[in-house]
Simulated scan of single mutants.
Amino acid sequence: MAANHGPNVPPNSTGGRIWARTNCIFNNTGRGSCQTGDCNVVLQCKTYGLPPNTVVEYALDQHNNLDFLDISLVDGFNVPIELSQLSSGCTGGIRCTADINGECPDELRAPGGCNNPCAVFKTNQYCCDAPGGNCGPTNYSRFFKNRCPSAYSYPKDDPSSTFTCSRGSNYRVVFCP
């Protein structure tokens, strides 16, 4: 995952997540917090960011020498995002640029973003975490899907939300395109 104006993913990475953090304040020792995407009060994330956050997920050099990519709204939404390929051999670029924060249902509103229903309601219907669980779309996931059709809107949303590229492709992630 190469970027024109930012850090590159370390060599030999096989997968990861990229998200924006907003309204952050850190001291000179790297301790602080962010309104969205916070990483447990540290500047250098060692865990996933806390919702709400718009996430790019990638798994590189997987089945049939393909890279698998997606934009996920499963953890909610904080900023518009675009994932584009800088080489050929991909099934397409992915964008989520809708005004989700402005249109967010009241019960999902959070400072700086639009929360995912799992974080708000904490039930299997929205979290899909029961062993062998097979949750489906809900009115809340449809809210996200209608605004960003190519993004994951709930955990089992694979068929319409995972994109592939040939192994060794380069990508660009743009926040607020």
Rank of each mutant, 00 (worst) to 15 (best):
P11V: 08
V79L: 13
V55D: 03
C127L: 04
A110D: 05
K46L: 04
C135P: 11
C165R: 13
P155S: 02
P52T: 09
T54E: 02
N146H: 13
V174H: 06
L66G: 10
S166H: 07
G132W: 01
L83G: 13
N139W: 02
V74G: 04
N139E: 09
V120Y: 05
G92Q: 08
T54C: 10
F26S: 15
T97I: 15
V173A: 13
Y48S: 15
D38L: 00
F144R: 00
T91N: 09
G168K: 02
N116R: 07
S169W: 03
P131H: 08
T162V: 15
G16F: 02
V74W: 02
G112N: 10
R21W: 01
N12P: 05
G113F: 03
V120S: 13
F68C: 12
K145V: 03
P52G: 12
F68T: 04
V120C: 11
S160M: 06
L43D: 11
S33M: 05
E57W: 03
G37K: 01
R95F: 08
N124H: 10
P7D: 05
G133H: 06
W19F: 07
V42I: 11
P111G: 14
G133S: 13
V79C: 10
P159W: 03
C165L: 04
G76Q: 08
S160L: 06
N124L: 03
E107Y: 05
V55W: 02
K145I: 01
G93K: 15
D158P: 06
V173S: 12
T162K: 05
Y154K: 09
D157F: 03
S160N: 14
T22R: 11
G89V: 14
R172F: 12
R172D: 14
P105H: 11
R147N: 14
S150W: 03
T91H: 05
